[in-house]
Nucleic acid binder design. Structure first.
Lengths: 237, 237
DNA sequence: GTCTATACCACGATAGAC
DNA sequence: GTCTATCGTGGTATAGAC
């Protein structure tokens, strides 16, 4: 059902979407009022309710628009890796890379929402209530399936339930980092070198996650007596 | 300055604090109104503003009361490990244990706030705005200092900046997990075995984090030619 | 179909009586 | 210390203009 007429300078819906994204990113969801958004967009207050239904539905559309391309880029990255590997399993590092690097690109392209989008995403993922429970699953399903397969091939000795949890931990560390949280930095004693480029941070994140994903199992099946920790004293207490 | 008179059934301030904690945990901060809190506590609406000054100051006191004991338990745990080790460096696993296990205990003791407290804490840590920026540092400083020292001794070959980032990643994965987020679970394809006991989850988390913290450096100084990944195909692309 | 003006009710906060 | 009354602002709903 096409609209019969619309504005010259983008239609109202897009203007609201753009203004909302900008303000939500800058000030957060709760701290941004619909009156600020509609004022910035130059539209009437009631327009947001007409076009979106509610403030929550608005923020949902705001970052649905970003999440699709991001996850598509992740899958495309993985596709490239797998076709290059010609059937052999990938390294864990490269699989993690396929998840993290596209997010890094998003964080640096203002047109794609910039780092602020990831910050908002990271925050909204942690939210126990609201729309996350119904929206995120649909957007992440394909990504999870594909990467779970890849990890399973790369880590054949890790049981499925263990792998699920490790992916969970990976998800947490990644969300936290990409969200730009600097809890430690603020705490002061550990200053995360601000001069570090995003690339070097991502490299550090990848090696951390890859090592965690490949951790030896709590009770080793003793198939491959792999020595992991070295140069560290034995377990105390 | 002691109060001259106070109620029989706990004074107003404590009643508000108790009701607020319960409701904030259940419904989140933004979704809980002062009117609900004061109604549940059986006190007047204006009382919360008289005793605390604002809603924000109230939630701050709510989880300051829990965070102190939690971090004290972490330091005590580390103290015990170190005195038992008699000067030798601890294993990375045991240090991580000292961070995670006290939180597990909190999550299971309703009197200490229960799992809901960790959920609120994890969410509030992700919040870019508000009181976190001024409150959390003071409560976490001692913990960070002590554990950074311990990790530095346990991982003498990891540069300080690298270690800071790895602790950051650890913090993220841990907050995410303890906050009880089950993004993957909801996404469905990866069901995190609900039958898993908290203890087994914590064990998995510890081994994941310990492996990540001990990851080989991106460009190895080649002092200790440590083989980490095995049974995985070589890097593709 | 779109957009506007406007009214509604709940919220956090505060002043002032007691 | 406690209470009532009230203020400004928030998200939402609707009637009606175009």
């Amino acid at each position: 059902m096409p609209r019969s007429r619309q504005r010259i300078l983008g239609d109202t819906k897009d203007r609201i979407l753009g203004a909302a994204e900008k303000l939500f990113m800058e000030r957060g969801y709760a701290a941004t009022s619909l009156r600020e958004i509609t004022a910035a967009a130059g539209v009437n207050l009631a327009a947001v309710n007409y076009h979106f239904g509610s403030k929550e539905a608005l923020v949902r559309e705001v970052f649905e628009r970003r999440l699709g391309p991001l996850n598509a880029a992740r899958i495309a990255y993985l596709d490239r890796l797998e076709s290059a590997a010609a059937g052999r399993p990938l390294t864990v590092e490269s699989i993690v890379e396929a998840i993290v690097v596209p997010a890094l690109h998003v964080s640096r392209e203002p047109l794609a929402g910039g780092a602020a989008f990831l910050r908002l995403l990271g925050r909204v993922i942690l939210e126990p209530t609201g729309f996350v429970r119904e929206i995120l699953p649909a957007h992440y399903r394909d990504v999870i399936v594909r990467f779970k397969e890849a990890f399973t091939r790369a880590l054949p000795n890790i049981p499925e339930s263990e792998l699920a949890w490790r992916m969970h931990f990976m998800f947490g560390a990644m969300s936290y980092t990409l969200a730009g949280n600097d809890a430690l930095q603020l705490i002061g004693t550990c200053k995360l070198d601000g001069a570090d480029s995003p690339e070097s941070i991502i490299r550090r994140l990848i090696s951390f996650l890859a090592a965690g994903l490949q951790a030896r199992l709590p009770e080793q099946d003793s198939k491959r007596p792999r020595k992991l920790a070295s140069g560290v004293g034995r377990k105390a207490a």
